[in-house]
């Protein structure tokens, strides 16, 4: 835990409620991270059983999401939080939303893995998988750092996560360009390249969600809203055909 505390209320039950919320959000983050790692393991191992297990656990992410939302609404209704408590509640609510979407994207990757390896109709070679694995490692590392910042409410670590958009964009663009060359070489590659492109886009979205978690931790701790900083005029647009990051 950082110097920044959730505790110290005269009404100590309020401390308990905020700590409980924090624990549950971290728990959801851990689950989303596990789902992402498992989906990538399914790709790495070419194992559809792992992918099916990811899909089977999706309901746990959704259940936790709904349950934490209930807790948040209860705190808002009963405690009427203000100042840092208000930022805590708002940041947790938004973080939960991001983590639930991480779960959705992991689920999507798992489904795409099944499409690739169930019967090995579209089995891509190791060379084609290289970019997916590289992107996957980078995204998992970013998500781990985001969860660590959230767990410790560490504003410095969170700022580093929030500021990592360009690296992730560059990685994604490079991967998509390389995949395009496989189609140019042999049109019969188009099936698996489309699937791998979808996987890379899903991983990019997971990275975006991780970044957003970092932004919410910065807001929670410092009160500074660092979202949408790419809107600064000196920030050049990224090249390639990737869809712009909405957030």
């Amino acid at each position: 835990m950082s110097q920044y505390g959730l505790e110290g209320h005269t009404v100590r039950r309020y401390d308990g409620e905020l700590n409980h919320l924090h624990l549950r959000v971290v728990e959801l983050g851990g689950l989303a991270l596990h789902q992402t790692r498992s989906a990538l393991a399914a790709l790495q191992e070419r194992d559809v059983r792992i992918a099916r297990a990811v899909i089977g656990r999706e309901w746990e992410v959704n259940r936790l999401d709904v349950s934490i939302d209930d807790d948040l609404i209860s705190v808002i209704a009963r405690r009427a939080p203000v100042a840092r408590d208000l930022r805590i509640v708002m940041a947790f609510a938004k973080t939960v939303n991001e983590l639930e979407r991480v779960g959705d994207e992991a689920n999507k990757v798992a489904r795409l893995a099944i499409g690739l390896f169930d019967g090995f109709r579209l089995d891509p070679g190791d060379a084609q998988m290289w970019d997916v694995q590289t992107m996957g490692r980078r995204v998992v590392e970013l998500l781990e750092r985001a969860m660590d910042a959230l767990d410790r409410l560490d504003v410095v670590a969170a700022q580093a996560v929030a500021g990592s958009r360009r690296e992730l964009d560059a990685e994604c663009q490079a991967g998509l360009r390389r995949l395009t060359t496989y189609v140019m070489e042999d049109a019969r590659n188009v099936g698996q390249v489309i699937t791998l492109t979808q996987i890379i886009k899903a991983l990019e979205r997971i990275g975006d969600h991780a970044r957003h978690v970092g932004e919410y931790v910065v807001y929670l701790v410092s009160g500074e809203d660092v979202r949408h900083q790419k809107c600064q005029p000196d920030d050049p647009p990224t090249g390639g055909g990737a869809a712009p990051d909405p957030g």
Partner: peptide, 11 residues
């Protein structure tokens, strides 16, 4: 002090 007071952490 302001934050501690309005969030009920004061006194």
């Amino acid at each position: 002090l302001t934050e501690d007071y309005i969030t009920g952490r004061f006194g």
